[in-house]
Nucleic acid binder design. Structure first.
Lengths: 177, 177
DNA sequence: CCGGCCATGTAATGTGTTACATGATTTA
DNA sequence: TAAATCATGTAACACATTACATGGCCGG
């Protein structure tokens, strides 16, 4: 069946902002939560069906034939609050970059340098993108804006740390040779 | 069967440091790579069997009856180098803390403050632990020590960023009320 | 001699992605 | 009218965790 309470929360949360189709929901999750969350169609549609069966969302005819607009019910809002209050389910750590660096002696110093340069560039790109989002967010005044800001700031701090760390490691490799 | 090339890399990497039992391998992964990697028994044993079949590891009688010591073969070392050179497979982002904060208006400001305080405390604990590891690492002189140092530094930067971010968000919430 | 740790392995289960099948609607 | 996009849904597969089954060994 493929469902976790966190997927339920993300779907209900999305619909709590505004009613939309499953397709639009996926785009919203990718575009708005993309920095810290992801869901695939294979999760979203079965989840919507299950939430509908449980009375947390309802569907009405969409703009196009065969399409539906899903909207959250009052019970769904209560359920969302309940889900968000549950303990955070962390994902087990799996950092492929650090795995490669840990065995850096086997991989070779030059390959490590390249990995670090790539990681640095990725972090810089992310930083620029998040700064853009931050400027956009500063212009918004709605009650959700400060909370969205927090998630952007988290990504920003993480990207900054990534750049500083990559430089630190590249220096460390210089000293080594 | 349950195998990914990254699991193969972690297992071969562990055995490249020294031969050991599957049980010891799991402990080593948990204790040494634990900050950025994890593998369960359900992954390790089938992986060892498969790697043995492929000639990348061999098993000899262990100290105890019924136990085995696994060691990496020359082909296994080549395979490890190959696996580490492959593109990094990232895990899709799933940050439960940020998901909760994003829908912070539904969750409530006080609950958000508590989440942030907890996150800050976690980051501080992690910071202290990593500083301890860093001091241990500074005393080591082996060729692997600098690479291990990089992975510790990554965790440290991330924890520092976590503390600063939590404070930033807590301030943001203060201003809000 | 019993409880706890070392050790191996399998089965059940959960969770998630990707690919596919299908078709409507819009746009170039 | 052909291609791209919107839209829903399912099936197959990949991956990982957890729990369980089994048994040897060691210390108190």
């Amino acid at each position: 069946m493929a469902r976790s309470s966190q997927t339920d929360a993300a779907v209900l949360g999305g619909l709590s902002v505004q009613p939309m189709s499953g397709y639009a929901l996926r785009e919203a999750i990718r575009d708005v939560l993309g920095h810290f969350w992801s869901e695939s169609f294979g999760q979203i549609y079965p989840t919507l069906t299950a939430l509908e069966r449980e009375g947390f969302v309802e569907r009405s005819e969409g703009d196009r034939a065969g399409s539906s607009t899903f909207h959250i019910t009052p019970a769904g809002r209560r359920r969302l609050r309940e889900l968000l209050s549950q303990p955070i389910q962390g994902v087990p750590p799996r950092n492929g970059l650090l795995l490669r660096l840990f065995f850096g002696r086997t991989l070779g110093a030059e390959a490590c340098r390249e990995l670090l340069r790539d990681a640095r560039a990725d972090a810089e790109r992310k930083l620029a993108e998040l700064d853009r989002l931050l400027a956009e967010n500063a212009a918004e005044t709605g009650p959700d804006a400060p909370f969205m800001r927090m998630t952007i700031l988290a990504g920003r701090r993480s990207a900054e740390a990534g750049v500083a760390w990559a430089d630190e490691c590249l220096n460390l490799l210089e000293e080594l040779s």
